[in-house]
Computed example of a mutant assay.
Amino acid sequence: MPTILLLVASNIFMTIAWYWHLKGGMEKPLLLVILISWGIALFEYCLAVPANRIGFAAGWSGGQLKVTQEAIALLVFGIFMVTVLGEPVGWRHVGALVCLVGAVAFLFAGK
């Protein structure tokens, strides 16, 4: 459970680092946006690295950690996309999430 919680928190920071400037920050100079994003991403790394170490120590494989992170990233981005960017969720978004959840299930099956 600590792995999942840390991955969720790290993905929140990374989503903000990558996409915050799309809504209201497009007029800022690119170099400034990059520097701000790097600062935000530092917190993401401070959460993602321990999440992966804890998960690996608990017996998760690298593949399990990565595909779980990707599923969480899509879910976090979906929430950001709707709440911050004001974009609608379509059937393709839902289908992509279902496929990623399936990938997670395949990697954890029989473990």
Rank of each mutant, 00 (worst) to 15 (best):
N11R: 10
G25N: 08
S10I: 07
M14S: 11
A9I: 12
F13H: 08
A9W: 06
L22Q: 09
I34T: 10
L31W: 06
Y19H: 13
I16D: 00
L7C: 12
L22R: 10
M14W: 07
I12A: 01
L31V: 11
G25H: 09
L22S: 11
A9T: 08
I12E: 02
P29R: 15
F13Q: 01
P2A: 09
L5V: 13
G24N: 04
L6T: 00
G25K: 11
V8W: 05
P2F: 04
K28H: 13
Y19Q: 11
T15L: 05
P29V: 03
L7G: 08
P29N: 13
I16N: 02
V8R: 07
A17D: 05
E27Q: 15
P29F: 02
L31A: 11
T15G: 05
S10C: 13
L6I: 03
G24R: 05
S10L: 05
L7I: 12
M14Q: 12
I34Y: 10
V8H: 03
K28M: 14
L7V: 06
N11T: 01
L32H: 06
M14H: 12
Y19E: 13
M26E: 08
A17R: 03
A9C: 07
K28L: 15
T3P: 01
L32R: 13
A9K: 05
I4L: 12
L6R: 02
K28Y: 13
A9H: 02
S10N: 06
V33T: 12
I12R: 06
I34C: 13
L32Y: 09
K28S: 14
L7Q: 15
A9P: 04
K28Q: 14
L31C: 01
S10M: 10
H21I: 02
I16R: 02
Y19K: 12
I12S: 06
L22I: 14
P29T: 05
W20R: 06
K23T: 12
L30Y: 12
L22C: 06
I12Q: 05
G24W: 03
M26P: 04
I12G: 02
W18Q: 15
W18T: 13
M14I: 15
W18L: 14
H21F: 14
L32S: 10
L30H: 10
I4R: 00
K23I: 13
W20V: 05
K28E: 15
L31F: 04
L31Y: 04
V33W: 03
K28A: 11
E27C: 02
A17T: 07
F13Y: 09
I34W: 10
P2N: 06
L5K: 06
